[in-house]
Amino acid sequence: MSAPLIEAHGLSKRYGAFTAVDHIDMRLDEGEVFGFLGPNGSGKSTTILMLLGLTEPSEGDVTVLGHNPTRDPMAVKRQVGYLPETVGFYPDLTGKQNLEYTAALNRIPRADADRRIKELLEMVELGHAIDQPVGQYSRGMRQRLGFADVLLKQPKLVILDDPTLGLDPTGIQWLLGLIEEMSKNQAITILLSSHALQEVQRVCDRVAIMSHGKIVLQGTVTSLTAGDGTTGYHIAVEVRSAKPGLVEAARELPGVTSADLSGNLLTVHAERDVRPQLISSLIANGGELLEVRARNRSLEDIYLRYFQEGALA
C-alpha cells in the first residue's frame, strides 16, 4: 500500500480560549472518497485550512502528499485542488478569463490551458456561458465553475468544503455524480466535508464525524451503521387488519429481537435487515401488507446525536 495522502496526528487549533479542533488523528489513502462530516461549527473548515496551510496548527502535525503544509505550502498547493465553502470569482471577468488566471497562477502553458479550460467548462455544463461575466452567473453556475477551477491543475487530491451548501436537490445529485466520476475515472482522491450526512453518505468510502472539534466516529458507512445489537433495524409493517398469529410469526424469525402489534401497525426490531423473510412469513400467515418501512437506527442515532445538537446550538 502506498503512503497516505493525508496524515494527521494530534492536530489542534485554538483561538484564544476556544478550541476549534481538538487533537484529531486522520489518514486518507490514495483513491478514497473520504467524507468529513459534522454540523456547522464543528471544526471541519478549520481542519481543512490547516491541511492547506491557510492557517497554522496550534499543536500536532500533519502531512499532505508527504509535505508539511505550513512549511512547504507550494508543494502542497501544486497538487491539491481546494473548493472553499463560498467560492469567489472576479465578477467582471468571464468564466473563461477567471480560469485563465488560475491557469496562469499554476504556470500551465497557454495552449494547454486553453484546451483544458474548454474541456472543463463543457464538462461542468457551462459551455454556453463561457464568455459571460461571472457576475451574471447563478450560485449553482458559480459552484460548477468552482469545480472546473479545482480540476484545472490536474490535482492528485481534491478538498471540497461543504460543496452541497445552497444547492438544490438536482444540483446535489449532479455534484455527487461528478464526485463519483472524478474518483472512478480520474483516480482523484477526494476529501469531502459536509454538514448533511444523509446527502453525501452514498458517495463516501469512509467517513469521519466531527463534533465540537473532535472526531467522534470514524470508519466505513456500513461499519458505522452495523450497530451493536441494541440498535440495529426497526421495521414497521402496516397491515389491513390485525390477524392473530402475525406477531408470533414475526417473533419466530431468526434475527428478530422483538415484535409488537398496536392497531394495524406491526413494529419489529431486528439485528439485521430481515424484511424479505418477514414479508414472506407474514403473507404465509394470511397477512395483507399495505406498507413495509425499515429505519436504520444507528444512522438515525448518529444524526440525532451529532447533527441535530449542532443545528440547535
Binding site: L52, L54, M74, K77, R78, V80, G81, Y82, P84, T86, V87, G88, F89, Y90, P91, T102, L105, N106, R107, G146, D149, K153
Partner: peptide, 15 residues
C-alpha cells in the same frame, strides 16, 4: 479579494 471570496481561492494556488 477577501470580500469577493477570491483570496482563499488564489492562495490555494501555488502562489
Amino acid at each position: 479579494e477577501r470580500t469577493h471570496g477570491t483570496l482563499s481561492r488564489i492562495l490555494a494556488q501555488p502562489v
